[in-house]
């Protein structure tokens, strides 16, 4: 029962996140803006449309959306919301989660290379690099959580509220901060990437999927929502872990991640592309530092 509720909530969050970001942005910029479910209509429309394939592409191009969506869907199945249980859980499943995202990334990167377009190659090379550099951040976060809680599966880490002191609570808050940063990198949001730009040269994720149309594009969008939901829920979990760790508070909180992203997007411009590697490496370094600080806290060493 708990698993079922968990899954339903995850799907709901996945479907809502994108809408919340758009809403927040339109409110902050003083526009009326589209409805909160407009992106669902867009994707439904895409799914009903026909497709155009380039003669340069091979079968791989047609299989890639299925791989991308399949891996994102499966990755989502590992995520618990608050005290609920995910469908799949075993020792070390954090690694499986990260590598499933990696499989999705590989499939899209290869599909982009398959079109033979220099723009898409450009996007693919950036996506592959940023994906590689953000990987340590995800693992450092997972390692910190594993160390603090003493478990290595997400269901066990996020099972009950932990009794943590103030310092460790701050660490958890910072972990959520890092997870939000990971969200911006993985989802291609400002300041790493800007999906709204009209110049393909400056895009990362969107330029990779330029040649997709119809149901393929719809599948890629949905898979992106799954990925985003997984990371947003993890961030909300990390914040609430030392506090009131209940699903009915974590689930709305993960939508707050979308609010934060919306606020950031309204107030900030896209970073210079060349600075992206520095930015992402800083996030990874911050995550590694958090792990170290948490370790020192575990040893009860005073940090003055």
């Amino acid at each position: 029962m708990k698993e079922l509720l968990n899954t339903i909530l995850l799907f709901a969050i996945a479907l809502l996140l994108g809408g919340v970001i758009t809403r927040v942005r339109s409110i902050l910029s003083g526009r009326k803006g589209p409805s909160i479910v407009q992106h669902l209509h867009n994707v439904a429309l895409l799914a009903r449309k026909g497709s155009v394939y380039s003669p340069t592409t091979s079968v791989l191009f047609r299989v890639a959306p299925a791989v991308y969506m399949g891996s994102a869907l499966l990755a989502l199945m590992f995520i618990p919301i608050g005290n609920l249980d995910p469908i799949i859980s075993f020792r070390g499943d954090v690694v499986v989660f990260a590598y499933l995202l990696g499989l999705g990334r590989l499939s899209l990167v290869l599909a982009a290379m398959d079109t033979g377009s220099s723009f898409e190659g450009m996007g693919a090379s950036r996506e592959a690099l940023y994906g590689a550099l953000i990987e340590p951040a995800l693992f450092a976060v997972a390692a910190t959580l594993a160390m603090v809680c003493g478990y290595t599966s997400m269901a066990d880490i996020f099972s009950v509220a932990r009794d943590l002191d103030v310092q460790m609570t701050i660490v958890m808050l910072l972990l959520a901060y890092v997870l939000v940063k990971i969200y911006t990198v993985e989802q291609g949001r400002i300041p790493v990437d800007d999906p709204r730009t009209h110049l393909e040269l400056t895009m990362i994720h969107e330029v990779m999927i330029l040649d997709y149309s119809g149901i393929d594009l719809a599948m890629i969008h949905v898979a992106n929502w799954f990925k985003g939901a997984a990371i947003a829920v993890l961030a909300a979990n990390a914040v609430m872990l030392p506090l009131c760790f209940k699903w009915w508070i974590v689930a709305p909180l993960s939508l707050v991640v979308a609010v934060i992203i919306g606020v950031v997007e309204s107030s900030q411009a896209r970073g210079k592309l060349l600075r992206n590697t520095t930015y992402i490496l800083t996030v990874s370094a911050l995550a590694a530092m958090l792990l170290f600080v948490a370790y020192l806290l575990m040893l009860n060493i005073e940090i003055s």
């Binding site: 497709s51 155009v52 380039s54 003669p55 592409t57 079109t115 377009s117 723009f119």
Partner: peptide, 11 residues
């Protein structure tokens, strides 16, 4: 649905 072939989008 209609599935067509078309050249790679060259921007």
């Amino acid at each position: 649905r209609e599935v067509r072939m078309g050249a790679t989008w060259g921007c």
